[in-house]
Design a protein around this nucleic acid. Structure first.
Length: 113
RNA sequence: GACGGAGGUCGAGGCGAUCGCUCGUUGGAGCGGCCUUCGGGUCGCGAAGACGGGAGGAAAGUCCGGGCUCCACAGGGCAGGAUGGUUCCUAACGGGAACCCGGCGCAAGUCGAGGGAAAGUGCCACAGAGAACAUACCGCCGAUGGCUCGCCCGCGAGGGCGGGAUCAGGCAAGGGUGAAAAGGUGCGGUAAGAGCGCACCGGGCGGGCCGUGAGGCUCGCCGCAUGGUAAACCCCAUCCGGAGAAAGACCAAAUAGGUCCCGUCCCCGUGGCCGGAAGGCCGCGGCGAAGGCCGGCCCGGUCACGCGUUCCGAACAGGAACGGGGCGGGAUGGGUAGGUCGUUGGAGGCGACUCGCGAGGGUCGUCCCAGAUUGAUGAUCGCCGCCCCGCGAGGGGCACAGAACCCGGCUUACCGGCCUCCGCCGAGC
RNA sequence: GCCCCCAUCGUCUAGAGGCCUAGGACACGGGUUUUUCACAUCCGCAACACGGGUUCGAAUCCCGUUGGGGGCA
């Protein structure tokens, strides 16, 4: 399985991210939340937005982005095509491991496949 | 050996495996533009693969200084801000080096916004007698001139001696207050005292020598009142135009609108209302230290200017030309979305030699060392190392922290490791 | 990325070098009043964000940290 993460699998425009916030379904978990919106693309796309409000230090914000990007990269087959996802962590990463983020992501996204 | 001081340096702890991200070089599957004699030529983009690079000493805070870019600018001044021992380093600095002075420390060292208070103004609460042209509460003295008491001398006027601390008066040493009390200590001196006199220290003025200088040393003179505060206003000297990569340059859709050209021949071209357009002045508001700038289409008011037909014809009939509007087509300037550049090769790193006490400078050689754009530099696992907890099996931890145009500093955060030099104490030789 | 501003009891605030051991209001705790509650009244608790410096003396002046708020496409 191709586990690479292509540039086209990121959401790059502020307008598209805003569309996910406005029109997307909100899936809220303990440590993060997702805004998911259907698209007609043949693949899933993701953007990550770490609010400074919850995660103060730049190092920790980078940590969150890396963990989420890895989780998406390894599990995009399970998530399935045609989704635009905006991930928003809601607390500092602390000692979260990749497995923790992956399980949280899959359980939340399984609610609205 | 113990304690302490100064400085430098390294820092995802090391090695490996698997899965990824990003940039460059190479590579060329393919895609597009232009030209074409349809064979192709040429320019640009560019997938797979290969090779190479990929966070910091603080990348941080944004506290200073520069480069760079745009705007403004004849020159000067005002306003405002910053700095403040001296000499030097530097592109520059509020940074650094060496030195001077002062405080602290036995010392190595360390700390200091360290110009001016006999230019001016202000302030110095409380306490205290008195606080800036000083003062006299307690106290000391009462020499001098009185008063009074006793004794003595004298016939007497009066005189002498001693006492009282009573009046005039003298004093500023001691006590006490305070952050600060108008030089300090000692001796002499005196009624008691006092730079009143003297010695030393301190201070002021002048000279000499040394030093580029801050300043140091020294000689002479003056017994010597000139408090503190300028991180209070201020004065002096020096420096500073404004904004910042969201700077700025370029390319540039769709839609609407501007300008120009062609066509159509659909409408209009008398006056008024309505309307259009651009300029001056005044006012209002905002910003700026000011000059000044700005006002979304459309800031308000006012004034002035100015455009909105002529010809043929008897004609307000009809027609022509010209102008305007609409419609259709074409060209084109500006600008928005979006994109590209700016953007990493630089006051650059390393090494050698060399000048300088040093900060640093010079010459030569050598290297290319992050460039993302919802923002890369990672994730997972194994072995080893170090630290902590535990008798043990074992468990936990390995800082502070993430580039965004680039440099030079400062400041702040931080697990620790390594190196160099120095002081002091103790012991041995 | 850049540029501004602010910080005083639990909350809102006064303060401009000495009158500050920091004042007021609300809140909180206790008492009085009332059959009880409320109102009223008396008493109490409680703060200068932190670290240096200037000054005889700092909430106030200066420097540096920390925390919070706002603006710019």
């Amino acid at each position: 399985m191709d586990q690479r993460l292509l540039r086209r699998e990121r959401i790059g425009r502020q307008a598209e991210i805003d569309a996910c916030y406005r029109q997307g379904v909100r899936l809220v978990g303990k440590i993060l939340r997702f805004h998911v919106r259907r698209s007609d693309r043949a693949f899933a796309r993701m953007a990550i937005s770490v609010p400074r409000r919850f995660v103060r230090k730049a190092v920790e914000r980078n940590r969150w982005k890396r963990l989420l990007r890895e989780a998406f990269r390894r599990n995009k087959a399970a998530i399935g095509p045609g989704l635009d996802i905006v991930a928003v962590p809601m607390r500092p990463p602390g000692d979260l491991k990749r497995a923790d983020v992956e399980s949280a992501m899959l359980s939340l996204l399984s609610r609205k496949p």
